[in-house]
Nucleic acid binder design. Sequence first.
DNA 1: GTCTATAGCAGGATAGAC
DNA 2: GTCTATCCTGCTATAGAC
Lengths: 211, 211
Amino acid sequence: MIQDHKHDMTQERLLDKAEALFAQRGYDAVSVREITAAAHCNLAAVNYHFQNKKNLYLEVFRARWIPRARRLQEFFRKSSVIQNATSPTAIAQGLAEAFLLGPLSDDERHRHFQLMVRELSQPSEALELVAEQVMRPFFTELAEMLRPAIGNGVEKQRLMLDALSMFAMVLYFNFARVAVTRITGREYDDAFKGQLVKHITEFSRTGLGVG
Amino acid sequence: MIQDHKHDMTQERLLDKAEALFAQRGYDAVSVREITAAAHCNLAAVNYHFQNKKNLYLEVFRARWIPRARRLQEFFRKSSVIQNATSPTAIAQGLAEAFLLGPLSDDERHRHFQLMVRELSQPSEALELVAEQVMRPFFTELAEMLRPAIGNGVEKQRLMLDALSMFAMVLYFNFARVAVTRITGREYDDAFKGQLVKHITEFSRTGLGVG
DNA sequence: GTCTATAGCAGGATAGAC
DNA sequence: GTCTATCCTGCTATAGAC
């Protein structure tokens, strides 16, 4: 029992540090030595608990990333905006709030989106997991939420593209933080994040609203 | 002269292969050995021509990425859509066409956006160059193009966020190709890219178009 | 300018003591 | 389960012949 406990603690610490480092600098730039040092355990622990480096990376997705994505989706579904209305505007606002302000700490959110962008732009086995278990079901769900308002006659692809576009903004304003800060001159404090949510909601509702 | 010629050819080949490989797999995952092998030249050539690996990476941006970004922007400015109208819709369409269909080959476009996303999500010195010489001026220009239609009274930040949002979609549909394909079931052939341009234009104009 | 050879180091992984 | 010691591979970078 004590052994299991210690075992678990080491595994947990390794997963935590591995996720943070992989998110920050990517799989290849991070060494097992660095991860174990950060987790205050021995070099051999990664191989003992996770067989090898690659499997540790996958386990980060299985044990951390996917559950967190589910929490985010749950938060979105239960948010008051969605509970009170399922208009496209409400959906956009719910999405933006959940993913920009939602239940995650700043660090956790940052890690989450960094890992996602890495996988989107350079898919590994982890994307298989993520696409099948998280993304496809969620976008399908979003598309069906949009259908009543957009039009029952409309093809599914149109709804999917709408959902992907809302998500594109959410993703972008999370991962391109440094560039957005550089271009707008604004730091990602609570005020600015609030404005971003408002902007994404508004842009999704009416686009540029003219001509 | 012959020496200069050979010299130049080797440099060019190195830049080409380096860009392709860095875009595909990232700085750390790619070795100098791999680059020189692909460029059919000697291992020592990188150090001779570019001092070290990191400077080769930066030179990829200076000599390849930035000029290409300028070509893209030039194509956008001179596109018939923009020449004939500067409504927000025309701007969105011009952007989407330039960056999704524009003057680049598929491979070149893919490389271009992969490198950009890598820098946006994990900035290195290269982002300094790109932000100051390309991004900031371009987004400022876009914002000013939007101003007359959106409203003269509106703060610059609102215009910047609009420009960033249009760009978010363009970027996303370029770099998250694998995921988009997985979710929509559509390959990135000419037909689908045409639909994406139409979608981005339309979404930028009216968003989801309803309540 | 190009090549070979090699220095010097860091990486992943494992065997075996505890 | 944890640790040390070590193997082996592959990396960047450079010295020096051509």
